[in-house]
């Protein structure tokens, strides 16, 4: 088969593929069935009373469907450790050893030529870093009232950490941007999350139930706690990944 014929065959296969998928998806994407009201009506009527969170998305995310959120943080956890193991270490972390990527394998450091570290970048990010961190904590803690939540707050915190790391001098690093501490925060937050999730079992309110329901703690307190833990975990995890990719995973 000549190169040209092969090319045409290839294109024909692609076209067939896309056409078939389009034919299947058109009725789904273009459907004009009325959107169901049952869940919205139920939540608008009872959501605040049942969960205590006026942000209904948070109420679902960490209340009604908190188990999904646990799954999601686990996906993030696996993705972070997998990505770091694959990139920074060429997979050697997977095969053996404890501790963190050692300096020799941190190739990506060289992809960031020194000239990109301008004075401007260092000053701006160094000064903005703490502000971003504070904002992240705000987003994290007020997720039950306003748009935001643990995950979103955690991502902002992670960018704050990256700002701090970019802002500091090449070799200087403070305790917040040091990978060891970030890994510690992340693993401790993960353990805390699991404990919080199963604490309801011990107190009798069931798996992922509000553990202190009997003692007068409203569900919203539990949601805030989960928000804080998830924020810490996501912030530390993503921050660690970014710093490892910056080549500071020492």
């Amino acid at each position: 088969m000549s190169g040209r014929a092969r090319r045409i065959l290839f294109l024909a296969q692609i076209a067939l593929c896309v056409l078939l998928v389009a034919a299947v998806l058109i009725p789904v994407f273009l459907s004009s069935m009325p959107w169901p009201l049952s869940a919205r009506d139920y939540l608008q009527a009872n959501g605040l009373a049942e969960s205590g969170a006026s942000n209904l998305v948070s109420a679902i995310y960490l209340g009604y469907r908190a188990f999904d959120t646990l799954g999601e943080t686990i996906v993030l956890l696996v993705a972070i450790s997998g990505t770091i193991a694959i990139i920074a270490h060429g997979g050697a972390v997977l095969a053996q050893g404890y501790g963190l990527p050692s300096g020799t394998a941190s190739e990506p450091a060289r992809h960031l030529p020194p000239k990109t570290r301008t004075e401007l970048l260092e000053v701006v990010t160094g000064k903005l870093g703490p502000v971003v961190l504070v904002f992240g904590v705000y987003v994290m803690m007020y997720g039950h009232l306003s748009p935001g939540g643990g995950f979103q707050g955690g991502v902002v915190i992670a960018s704050g950490i990256v700002f701090l790391a970019l802002g500091s001098r090449v070799d200087a690093s403070n305790s917040l941007t040091s990978p060891e501490n970030l890994v510690r925060i992340e693993s401790a937050a993960f353990a805390l999350l699991l404990l919080a999730a199963s604490s309801g079992i011990i107190s009798g309110s069931g798996f992922f139930g509000n553990p202190l329901a009997g003692a007068g703690l409203t569900p919203v307190a539990f949601i805030i706690t989960l928000n804080a833990i998830i924020g810490l975990k996501v912030g530390a995890g993503l921050g660690f990944m970014c710093i490892a990719m910056l080549g500071r995973g020492k």
Binding site: A39, S54, L56, E72
Partner: peptide, 28 residues
């Protein structure tokens, strides 16, 4: 979908919460 004293009908919060999860999984 943020409950307030005087508020009309809110949008369906369920898809938003589900997509929050789906976005994070997609990023990972």
């Amino acid at each position: 979908p943020i409950i307030d004293a005087e508020i009309g009908l809110v949008v369906d919060p369920v898809p938003q919460a589900l997509m929050l999860t789906a976005i994070v999984i997609g990023v990972c």
